[in-house]
Structure formats: C-alpha cells, structure tokens
Amino acid sequence: MKLRRNNNFLIEPASAATGDIAFNLIVFFLVCASTQPDSGRKQILPRSENQQQKQTEQIQNLEVSLDRNSVSINTEKIPLTDFPSRIKRKLQGKAKPEDRIVVVKSTKDVPYHHWIAITGAIEDGGGIITLQLEEERSIQVP
C-alpha cells in the first residue's frame, strides 16, 4: 500500500508587514503632494489705515486707471504694449519713495490677469502701488 504524502500546505504571505508598507506608501505620496513649490510675486502695499492720512499727498502722484481692456496714465490712454516703457519713463528720476507712489484705480470688471500685468509693470518700473477703492455707502431712502 502506498502512503500519500500530504503536500497541500497552506502558503500564506506574511501579513505582519502590510501595515508598515501601507504607511510608508502613504507617507511617500503625502510628501510628494505637499512639496509642490509655489511661485509668485511679492507686493508691498501700504496699510489701508494710513491711506486716508496720505490722501492729500496722493493728488500729485501718478494715477493709473484700469478698464477691462485698456489702461491710462493720468487720464491719457496708453496702448498696453507701451505701458511698461511709459510708466518707467514717468518714474525716472524720482528718488523719494513718496514720489514713486502710483495710485491704481480699477473699474469693477477688470480681470485679475490684466491687473497683475499692469501692477507688475509699475513695480518693475520702480513704482509703489496704492489702491484706490470705491467705498460702499448705504443711503437710506425715506
């Protein structure tokens, strides 16, 4: 009589390390996700509290008005391509920081990418940006 050898061993992979593997994988992906470098541009704006005090001085500063697609310096309309060179020329020779203040006025529909392009050109030309915002006022109608 032949005796059969029992070869049907249950082969189970070692599961003790699964937790560690999962942990390491997730830490790896988390680190990858959190190290996305941000790139951008710093912008120095005077604190809005001080703006009211300087309002009288601002009258003589350069004023840049922004529309949806156009730009003007002191009410003179300027082609967008000429703006960087024109603002640079206007700011040339102004050594004092208070003389280099440029008041930026925007209409409500100015898109952010247009605003960034113009304010970037002002800063590259040596200007210091100040925003002039329209104040909301509530009026009671009798």
């Binding site: 951008g40 541009r41 710093k42 912008q43 922004l66 925007s106 952010y112 925003l131 915002l133």
Partner: peptide, 30 residues
Amino acid sequence: VHRNTTALRFEPVIEAVSQAGGDLVHILEE
C-alpha cells in the same frame, strides 16, 4: 486668485490682507 476674477471681488480681498498687516504674495505662473 483665479485669473478671470474681477476687481469687484479681488480688490476687497487685497485690502483685507493689507488691513491685517500681511505681506502680500500673489501666486502666479510663469
């Protein structure tokens, strides 16, 4: 700020950051 956001929305946000004494850094792409 999303690139097509209008001044009506983003200017008050810039003002708020400025009011809080934060150093503004615009996140942009090259």
